[in-house]
Structures are given as C-alpha cells and as structure tokens.
C-alpha cells in the first residue's frame, strides 16, 4: 500500500561516477529528489549537466554508484527480472530521439502489443487488443489502420513521438520521464506533442518529469523546476521563484540564453 506521508518516489544523495582513476567524472553528484503523485516537474540544464544520467538512474536503466532510491516509501529493489518488470509497470519514459527509440526491425503493432502484454492483458482476444491499440492511436491523432504492419521508421519524427505517447497511454504508468522529447521535433509538432502529453497526464494523473534545456517549456508546464549544473541541483522551486527571480549566476545565464520568452504561450495556438 502506498505510504500516505511518503512521496511516490524519493532519491537521496543519488550519485553516478563514470570511469576511474584520473579519468573519473562525477556525472550526478549527491542529488536529492522527491516526486509527489500527479505533479509535473522539470529538470533544466545544459548538455552534459547530467540530466539524462539522472533520468536513467530514476528509471533503473543504470545503477547509481551512490545514494538510495525509495519507491512508495520502500527501498527500490530491481535486482531480478520480475522486480524490474513490476517497477517498470509504474515508471516509464519517452526518449529524446524518436528515430533511435524504436527497433527498426519491429513493426508498430508489436510495439503497442508489448504494452498491452505488459499491463497483463496479453490473453485478451485479438479484436479487443486491436480496439485498445486503435483507441491509443486515436488519442494521439494517429490512425491505427494506416499504421498497422508498418515499421516505425516509415513515420515522421513527430508521428513517432506521438506513437510513444500512445505507448504511455496503453501502459498507464505512475511516473513518466520525458527526456528532451521535443528537442528533435519541429516547432509545430512540438506544441502538439506537449499538448497531447499534458492531456494524457490529466487523464491518467501520472507524475511527469520533464528533462529539458528549454527554460520556456519549464516555465509553462511545470509545478516545480530544478536547475542542474555539473551533476548538482543548484536551484529549485516553483517556476515563478526560479525563472522569474533567478538567484544563481548559472540560472540567470540559462534564462538569458533563451532568445525570447513569450509573455503568453498558449499551447493550442503555437
């Protein structure tokens, strides 16, 4: 049972070192992070600041070299395949590059069927599964009839990222890590995709962790913003606190590097 007082996910002193000896680099350095149910947080930082490494540690794709991770108040245990499977039912991700996120030898149907199977619905009749896949696709404005028996690389980048959201729709996780999901997408599709993702969040009430270098995105979608520099959180708080009144030099520079922050950024019109 979820512990009411504890956050859904908590990391204490999370660290990751790469290499050894003189080549040793500290990619993530003593990071504390707590995710409450249903909130949207953004981790902002430059390239190489350790955002993606942190995301992969949260996901359990790479193991941290220091610190502890708690999920639903208990220490996270992903030592075996079954435990990993149980953990990944709750935490999912969308990656930066849609072109490399899909196995080019696997058809779209298989990608979506895997999600249905992971939710334990692998034994449903074929028609029911197709119905679920069609529903997921129509949620992201894709037509399943056009996609069936196609390969992911036959789609555009924006369509692939929408397919990723359809995956999340079927998987229904508690936490979603969105690792720079719009950085490879053109500006028009970007707004559509963010729009769909936020709509999905409202629907299934998941926690979303945006990882981005886009301060504007952080300001407009998140409940909480973390600024990351050299593997450390240097500033955190609500978007108003952090972005409108930055304290640290690094944060100020990040914000000044953004060409222009629109006063009003309506996702539906961009």
């Amino acid at each position: 049972m979820p512990n009411q007082t504890e956050p859904l996910f908590k990391a204490v002193g999370l660290s990751k070192e790469f290499g050894f000896g003189r080549q040793k680099t500290l990619a993530v350095n003593q990071v504390d992070l707590a995710l409450e149910e249903g909130e949207v947080i953004t981790i902002v930082g430059e390239s190489g600041s350790g955002k993606t490494t942190l995301a992969k540690m949260i996901l359990g794709l790479i193991s941290p070299t220091g610190g502890e991770v708690f999920f639903r108040g208990e220490p996270r245990d992903i030592s075996t395949y079954r435990k990993k499977l149980a953990y990944w039912k709750n935490i999912q991700a969308i990656f930066q590059d849609p072109y490399s996120s899909f196995n080019i030898f696997t058809k779209i149907d298989t990608v979506l069927l895997d999600c249905i199977r992971m939710r334990g619905n692998g034994n449903l009749p074929r028609e029911k599964k197709r119905e679920m896949m069609a529903e997921a696709c129509s949620f992201v404005n894709l037509k399943f009839e056009e996609l069936t028996n196609k390969y992911p690389f036959e789609l555009s980048g924006g369509q692939m990222q929408r397919l990723m959201i359809a995956r999340i729709f079927l998987l229904d996780p508690k936490i979603l890590i969105a690792d720079e999901i719009t950085s490879m997408i053109d500006a028009c599709s970007r707004a559509t995709i963010l729009d769909m993702l936020m709509e999905l969040r409202d629907k299934i009430g998941m926690t979303v962790v945006f990882i981005t270098h886009d301060v504007g995105l952080a300001y407009y979608v998140s409940d909480k913003v973390y600024i990351m520099e050299h593997g450390k959180f240097v500033e955190s708080g609500t978007p108003d606190e952090v972005i409108l009144n930055p304290k640290g030099d690094y944060t100020k520079r990040l914000i000044s590097d953004v060409p222009k922050i629109y006063e009003e950024w309506d996702l539906s019109t961009v």
Binding site: K56, L59, L61, Y81, K84, L85, W88, K89, Q92, A93, F95, Q96, D97, S100, S101, F102, N103, I104, V111, D114, C115, R117, M118
Partner: peptide, 15 residues
C-alpha cells in the same frame, strides 16, 4: 545503451 534497447527493457522484455 541505445534508446531502442532501453525502450525494450521498459517494455518488459527479458534479456
């Protein structure tokens, strides 16, 4: 460490 392998792991596939 490619993304498609990570995605496959997240989709619950065995080694």
């Amino acid at each position: 460490h490619r993304d498609h392998v990570n995605l496959s792991k997240l989709s619950g596939h065995s080694v």
